[in-house]
Design a protein around this nucleic acid. Structure first.
Lengths: 120, 120
DNA sequence: CAGTATCCCACTTGATACTG
DNA sequence: CAGTATCAAGTGGGATACTG
């Protein structure tokens, strides 16, 4: 994936934030990790729209940006866990506001669906 | 651009939010419109990394999703303004938290830059 | 289990030029 | 001024198969 899409001239703060969280699945990963440490497999199940390949790529970038950390337990079979770093946890307000908005949006859509049902 | 990337199964709220704001430049546009109504040209200047073509495409999608509205004044030459709709303004907490985080992040980078300077 | 490697095409995006 | 049209190039991302 190409990094540094935004050059954040005039230091636009929103572009800076996007620099870190704008991957296709990054904020979703962070969202799930806010809930606690997860294994690769856990994330795969939580985000079934996201292919294993994409999950792997996005995790790698988050790792490189210091947002998450990875721990490998050399058991057989191997066990890996991902968690937010302290830095990653500073993104909580951002992800939480996205969560809050999404909840509101989903309720809106549910009620619109009900209206359509009634209109039939 | 392909829409509806996320099918938001289990109604993951973060995926729902991304459905609306995940375009490459969408949150930046919303950010600038929080500041007030803007003309096409204003946005072009504020986001000089974004090509005219991309700006146009992203505005079209935000329009289609009801996030922004457009007003055309049939003067010569034509004048167009974009503003957030009431719905679009509900995204303020999301964009503001991105802004806040970006400000923090930029300061962090500035001080790191200074440290590097000193280290030379 | 937790990935990586390879192939490959669709979509995204930039460049450039044109227009009401 | 505020876009659109067209073309070409590059990338994103799926499918599938393989591995320590």
């Amino acid at each position: 994936m190409q990094r540094h899409i935004y050059d954040c001239q005039q230091g636009c703060p929103v572009e800076s934030t996007l620099q870190i969280i704008s991957g296709k699945w990054k904020s979703v990963i962070i969202y799930h990790l806010l809930d606690g440490t997860k294994r690769f497999n856990d994330l795969e199940k939580l985000m079934s729209d996201c292919s294993r390949r994409m999950l792997s790529l996005q995790l790698k970038e988050l790792l490189a940006d210091g947002v998450i950390s990875k721990e490998v337990f050399p058991s057989v079979p191997v066990k890996t866990t991902y968690s937010l770093t302290e830095f990653g946890r500073t993104l909580e307000p951002v992800i939480s506001s996205m969560e809050q908005w999404g909840i509101m949006y989903n309720q809106l859509h549910r009620s619109q669906a009900s209206v359509s049902e009634v209109q039939k």
